Amino acid sequence: MCIVAIAWQLFDELPLVAFSNRDEFLERPTESLHQWSDQPIYAGRDKQSGGTWLGVHQEAHKGIYRHNGRWAAVLNFRDGVQASNDERSRGALVTEFLTSCLSPMDFARNIDLQAYAGFNLIVGDATQAVIINNRGHAPTPLYAGLHVISNGQPEDSWFKTERLRGRLRQEVLPLIAENNSPEYWQQAAFNVLSDHTKAPVDELPDTGMAFEIEQTLSSVYIEPVAFGHNGKNVPNYGTRTQSILTLSKHSNKSAHVTAEIISREFDDCSK
């Protein structure tokens, strides 16, 4: 299901700070965060379909890493419509943008929207970020600010998106403003991403799922749960990866940008 918060152009030296939880079935094979050998990408990898949910462009040459500032994240769209077997993997959208030369807006405008199951996609570089989905949301540049997106429309105010937004504003963004060194604020960010508070009944979204499932999925961090019809009533779904992605601007004349992702992984669905 997943959730992503993007602090865009709020800090001079950190034009991007993205906070992400990836929620997934445990049996879906996944590779940890790494430099891909076949593409200039630094990301985790979905071994089932070959794409990723969050990544940056990174080239490795003789131990030296080069970045061009490109980054992307994708989330599924929860509207009760099941993906069909002939639809492409949503993770391919991320990899194709990271290896493309198109601007974020041009890339978004050229997506074959009907080729994929429901998605929210955010693509960007150091100067422009664009959000698009294939459920009626046209390519739209992000304005400077904090954007929180989950599995509905980008403007939807779900309990989990508002809770993450509020806690980041109160507990994390002030720390970054005070001192942008990662060791000063990243633990606080991971603490916020680990919030497992569930929504009250009257604040649940209506996405076509049963009440019990909707409430289980209503927290920022999804605790281990037996999801679907696995017949064993043992946890098979939950938050598997927490990530923080940053772009750092350097003050030299080359305006060099460095991209970095820090991740925590819970393949057994336990923190």
Rank of each mutant, 00 (worst) to 15 (best):
M1H: 09
C2I: 05
V4E: 09
A7S: 15
W8Y: 12
Q9W: 00
Q9T: 08
F11V: 13
F11S: 08
D12I: 10
L14E: 14
L16G: 11
D23S: 04
E24I: 09
E24L: 09
L26S: 15
S32P: 08
W36S: 02
Q39E: 15
Q39L: 14
G44D: 12
D46A: 07
K47A: 00
K47C: 10
Q48T: 05
T52Y: 04
G55N: 04
I64H: 12
I64W: 09
H67E: 00
A73P: 01
A73N: 04
A73E: 05
L75A: 06
G80W: 01
N85S: 14
E87R: 07
E87Q: 07
R90E: 05
L102N: 12
S103A: 15
N110F: 06
F119N: 04
N120K: 13
L121K: 05
I122G: 04
G124K: 01
G124F: 01
Q128I: 14
A129M: 07
I132D: 01
G136Y: 01
G136I: 03
A138D: 10
A138E: 10
P139A: 02
L142C: 03
Y143R: 05
H147I: 02
N151W: 03
Q153V: 05
Q153H: 13
P154D: 12
D156V: 12
S157Y: 09
K160N: 07
T161H: 01
R163K: 08
L164R: 02
L164Y: 07
N179H: 14
N180F: 10
W185N: 07
Q186P: 02
Q186V: 11
Q186I: 09
A189L: 05
S194N: 14
H196T: 10
T197M: 13
T197F: 11
P200C: 06
P200V: 07
P200W: 10
T207N: 15
E212Q: 15
S219P: 02
K232A: 03
N236T: 11
Y237K: 02
R240F: 04
R240S: 01
Q242P: 03
L245W: 07
T246L: 06
K249S: 12
H250F: 11
K253R: 15
E260V: 09
I262Y: 12
I262M: 14
R264C: 00
C269N: 14
S270V: 12
